[in-house]
Design a binder for these strands. Sequence first.
DNA 1: AATGAAACTCATGAAGT
DNA 2: ACTTCATGAGTTTCATT
Lengths: 159, 159
Amino acid sequence: MPMELDKFDRGILAILQRDARRSAELIGTAIGLSASAVQRRIARLREEGVIAAEVAIVDSRAIGRPLTLIVDVEVERERSELLVSLKQWIAAEPAIQEAWYVTGEGDYVLIVTARDVDGYDALMRKLIAENANVRRFQTRVALGTLKRGQLVPVEPTSE
Amino acid sequence: MPMELDKFDRGILAILQRDARRSAELIGTAIGLSASAVQRRIARLREEGVIAAEVAIVDSRAIGRPLTLIVDVEVERERSELLVSLKQWIAAEPAIQEAWYVTGEGDYVLIVTARDVDGYDALMRKLIAENANVRRFQTRVALGTLKRGQLVPVEPTSE
DNA sequence: AATGAAACTCATGAAGT
DNA sequence: ACTTCATGAGTTTCATT
């Protein structure tokens, strides 16, 4: 049940996904609507959960975490009670920025941010020590970041 | 040269990373500072690039893009001029939300959002057709999303 | 459902400690 | 460098079309 989004809603979302501080008046002039109309639509988009959050993006290098790692974690799928606690462990670990359960050999894919290799090693040792169902993991280091974010295409014409 | 961040800055960042709309006054009472002081620090953090952006997070399911895919792309490293245009291709493609160049066999890791399998197939066919240096790719479908975002740990005590 | 105006909240800037 | 106070911009609500 995806909600109805007309071209005005899409225009608003396209702008706010790049700059959440843009005023309703500026958005209005950009898409051809009054500030109040934009305001009300934004309120509705928040209400309906289309806009899930408005957040500040912090530069991880500026804050002393220049390392990004992509980790494939292989898990024993048998004991499901351990799986629940692994999920909780991942959710509670701030160094893990993103995590998906994916098709394949009981795999999870993690995006991890770290200060340095030692910091990453310590994290993964803890992961292994505290989660008995983690069979093994494979690490790839991000040598370059081409793109980051959760920008969702809102144009009906895009794939 | 990561800039100096005291506990107030870290407190501000911790809050704004979760809710960029929180008022300076509320942040001030939370961390024990006046609204103006918070305001001035936020301005400085933006200035210095610690806060890189403030963006709206759009729920991709609510907008009709329920599929997330993790794609490993293997590239011929020889012809560097093709590499540049591949990077531009990735940058220009809105369905690719995230992309890293990683250690390994000339690999890129992509996070892709799609309406359905057909939409994803079409995207990858275009990728292959328009980038001669893409040797092959491997797709994993996200069966579940445990965590998303770019939340950077700001506490000095976290790994 | 959009507009325009009023009331209000919040951010911004200045002066003082 | 933080606090308080004054000003201005932006958001929210309401009455109207």
